[in-house]
Simulated assay, not measured.
Amino acid sequence: MIQVEKLTKVYKTKTALSLDNLSIQPQEIIGLVGNNGAGKTTFLSLLLDLIEASEGKVEIKEEDVSKTEDWKKFTGSFLDDTFLVPFMTSYEYLEFVAKLHGWNKGDLEDFLEQTKNFYGEDFISGKKLIKDLSKGNKNKTGILGALIGNPDLLILDEPFANLDPTSQQWLRMKIQKLAEEGVTAIVSSHDLQHVTGISTRIVMLENGEVVKDVENSDSTLEELEKYFGDKISEDLI
């Protein structure tokens, strides 16, 4: 599904990301973890061709993302508020995204009916503009937009942040169900419990490099907590 080769992003003298080789297979759920500044958002931005690589390339289904836009047809993503249109309501935004994917009004209504346990109707049916929504409802709007079009590849950055517990659990189950149906997902999160709860594989970044790439297991959460806990101990010495 995804092949990364010699991928580097340098800002002036700082190397934000340096990945020699990384392969992501169909139906994998990749949990991307690391502290702030580790390179997670840089990596996701390069995957989505939002920024230009200093060196190397990203291929999705054997197509270089910087040289074609074909991959956009089957990719759903939400990284932050900049993906949204602030002066639309949530419904208007989702209607806009649906049209981009060739959905009609009936398709969108069916989708909203199927996902209503995630968002509730308080903001989808309201007239409040996205810019005036709570952070949680902005995230819900963006995540719903990423799911429209039945993507083969789903990329989400901190999707569990600011969501209520019911919505968090719905999203966990939805991502796992999508993977069972053939979708590949990359989920970046600071919440180790959530990310290990859904992922089939954990990729950890530190200083822009992969320092851990393992199949998720019953011991992974404990190992990650120890890793980051040890860093706190080092700071206190």
Results as ranks from 00 to 15, higher is better:
Ile2Arg: 00
Gln3Phe: 10
Val4Glu: 02
Lys6Arg: 15
Lys6Met: 11
Thr8Glu: 12
Thr8Phe: 09
Lys9Phe: 09
Thr13Ala: 10
Thr15Asp: 08
Asn21Pro: 00
Ile24Tyr: 06
Gln25Phe: 10
Gly31Arg: 02
Lys61Ala: 10
Glu62Arg: 13
Asp70Pro: 00
Asp70Asn: 14
Lys73Ala: 13
Ser77His: 10
Phe78Val: 08
Asp80Pro: 07
Asp80Gln: 07
Pro86Cys: 12
Met88Phe: 15
Met88Thr: 04
Met88Ile: 03
Thr89His: 04
Thr89Met: 04
Lys99Asn: 05
Lys105Glu: 15
Thr115Ile: 07
Lys116Val: 14
Asn117Tyr: 12
Phe118Thr: 00
Glu121Val: 02
Phe123Asp: 03
Lys128Met: 11
Leu129Phe: 15
Leu129Cys: 05
Ile130Arg: 06
Ser134Gly: 02
Thr141His: 02
Gly142Tyr: 00
Ile148Ala: 02
Gly149Met: 00
Asp152Gly: 14
Leu154Thr: 10
Asp157Ser: 09
Ala161Ile: 13
Leu163Cys: 05
Asp164Arg: 06
Thr166Tyr: 11
Ser167Val: 02
Gln168Asp: 01
Gln168Cys: 11
Trp170Met: 12
Leu171Trp: 01
Met173Arg: 15
Met173Tyr: 08
Ile175Ala: 08
Ile175Trp: 01
Gln176Phe: 08
Glu180Asp: 12
Gly182Lys: 05
Ala185Pro: 00
Leu192Ser: 12
Val195Glu: 00
Val195Pro: 00
Thr200Cys: 09
Thr200His: 08
Thr200Glu: 09
Ile202Thr: 06
Val203Leu: 08
Glu206Cys: 03
Glu209Ser: 12
Val210Gly: 02
Val210His: 02
Val211Pro: 00
Asp213Arg: 10
Asn216Ser: 05
Ser217Arg: 10
Ser217Val: 05
Ser217Met: 05
Leu221Tyr: 12
Glu223Trp: 07
Glu225Arg: 14
Tyr227Met: 13
Lys231Phe: 07
Glu234Lys: 14
Asp235Lys: 15
Asp235Trp: 14
